[in-house]
Simulated scan of single mutants.
Amino acid sequence: MSKEFKFFTFLLESYAKYKGVTAAEVLKILDEKNLTDFVYNMYEIYHIEAIENAYMDIDSLIKTGRTAW
């Protein structure tokens, strides 16, 4: 199992807990909005920042669907 996959799993589970939902529900939303690969590929940024920064970014991605800065 890659370090990216381990972190992505951790991120999904911790974000779900933060939002009061299940990780499956978060993954479903990301899949529906075609954001799963984007979030997964943000490993290099998300794993070095405070986890709350990733939460804010995911909130914004889900709300706007925008992946380009």
Rank of each mutant, 00 (worst) to 15 (best):
L27R: 12
F5H: 06
N41M: 12
L35D: 13
K17T: 15
L27P: 00
S2W: 03
L61Y: 02
Y55M: 06
E25W: 12
V21C: 11
I51W: 00
S14K: 13
K28G: 11
M42F: 02
F10M: 08
Y40G: 03
R66G: 04
V26I: 15
M56E: 11
I62N: 01
E13M: 10
A16F: 12
T36I: 08
Y43Q: 04
Y55P: 00
S60Q: 09
R66A: 06
L27T: 03
E4R: 10
F38Y: 15
E4M: 07
M42H: 05
I29Y: 05
F38L: 11
A54M: 03
E52W: 06
V26T: 00
T67H: 02
L12E: 01
I58C: 07
D57P: 02
F5I: 05
E13R: 11
D57L: 06
V39H: 05
H47S: 08
L61N: 01
E4A: 11
K19W: 09
L27K: 12
A54T: 00
N34S: 14
E32R: 11
N41E: 14
F10D: 08
I62W: 02
K33S: 10
K6E: 12
L30W: 03
Y55D: 06
E49H: 03
V39F: 08
I51F: 01
A54W: 00
D37Y: 11
E52N: 07
I45L: 13
T9V: 13
I48Y: 04
A50M: 11
I45P: 03
V39I: 15
I48S: 04
E49T: 07
T9I: 12
A23Q: 03
E52T: 13
Y46D: 10
I58H: 01
F7W: 10
M1Y: 04
F5Y: 07
